[in-house]
Design a protein around this nucleic acid. Structure first.
Length: 329
DNA sequence: GTAATCTACGTCAGAAAACA
DNA sequence: TGTTTTCTGACGTAGATTAC
């Protein structure tokens, strides 16, 4: 059973939204583009590995993609968690090309590529920490399950190396195409049943319910203010700002394109970049819309959750609902 | 307390789009 | 082409908040 599917991380959506609303010659643009490329590569690696993970027999394994839990002080994040009635498995997924060298002495990962040498945080250490955190989290809820971890290198052409004494790397690091065989071996080594089918469902529900998505806070990260952003509704065709609202549709003065729902994307951008609630006034300012009535009618038509009456009215922007509205509308 | 301001909501006329 | 539907903008009313 897949208890939680993987979805595009908010950090990727927010960076895309930010780039779409920054002037082309903006100073930080190259830095944001580089960060976005890195994030996207990581996400692609996770998706590539999901192909193998999702092949596991669903009656035997419960799969939770992209899990972020609170441990009391902070959060810990797991790329993929798989569990059965006998054991749990954490996957730490890395999409790094070139030759990777796992150095056990200094507990670091070194990547050799194009005559360059780059150091990375040791994914084995990361996975060990996640294992400790998850064990503690489950035990606090009276769930006792042996937990293993694997470091999955998603890129099949990546060369994996380590020093000969690094037994931990031999045991835990693998390419994604080896994953199913390795899980099968693990399954044979854990025979004692710890959870009933009913308990498995209960644990999955608890984990998914406790998942807290990471807020992007992309403006703070690059020390930008909302004033740096282009406001207005962006033309979906020629990408120009702003479209004008004319008789029930958004009209682009440049390419003459018309779109009835172009404000959905703008509202999604607002939610990703500014804040997750909006008033009529903020909506008008961001959409460059002069009519308060039109703003009210547009906000109402989207059936957003809201609180307050009259002057205190605030509309709440839910990211997943906005994504649904945007792609279905 | 009062005036000013902001917003929600309903109604209506006119304009544009959609449809037969 | 004529009719229907949808949307805007204007207007009025009412309630809540803010500034003085």
């Amino acid at each position: 059973m897949i208890a939680k599917e993987r979805s595009i991380p908010e950090k990727i959506l927010a960076k895309e939204a930010l780039l779409s609303r920054l002037p082309p010659n903006f100073d930080y643009r190259p830095l944001i583009e580089k960060d976005l490329a890195k994030r996207k590569a990581g996400y692609r690696g996770e998706e590539f590995t999901d192909y193998y993970v999702n092949k596991l027999p669903h009656k035997d394994f419960t799969i939770i993609h992209d899990l972020r839990l609170h441990n009391g002080q902070g959060y810990f994040q797991i790329d993929t968690m798989i569990f059965s009635s006998t054991f749990a498995l954490i996957l730490e997924i890395k999409n790094i090309s070139g030759t990777l060298y796992f150095d056990s002495k200094f507990r670091q990962l070194i990547r050799y590529k194009d005559d360059n040498e780059d150091g990375f945080l040791d994914p084995i250490t990361q996975a060990e920490r996640q294992t400790r955190e998850l064990r503690k989290w489950l035990q606090q809820r009276n769930i006792f399950l042996p937990i293993e971890y694997l470091v999955v290198i998603s890129n099949p052409s990546t060369v994996i190396k380590s020093d000969p004494q690094n037994f931990l790397a031999f045991k835990t690091v693998l390419h994604s195409h080896e994953l199913l065989d390795r899980i099968e071996k693990l399954r044979k080594s854990f025979l004692k049943e710890k959870l009933t089918q009913k308990e498995i469902k209960k644990v999955a529900k608890l984990l998914v319910k406790s998942h807290t998505p990471e807020k992007s806070q992309v403006l703070e990260k690059y020390k930008l203010s909302a004033f740096s952003l282009n406001t207005g509704v962006q033309c979906p065709k020629c990408r120009v700002f702003p479209m004008k609202r004319i008789y029930g549709t958004w009209f682009c003065a440049r390419c003459k394109c018309k779109d009835k729902t172009a404000h959905y994307k703008a509202l999604l951008d607002y939610c990703l970049l500014v804040e997750s609630s909006i008033t009529n006034k903020q909506f008008r300012k961001f959409m460059q819309l002069s009519s308060q009535d039109t703003a009210q009618k547009l906000l109402k038509s989207m059936k957003l959750a809201h609180s307050g009456t009259n002057k205190g009215r605030v509309y709440y922007l839910n990211l997943s609902s906005l994504l649904d509205i945007r792609y279905s509308g």
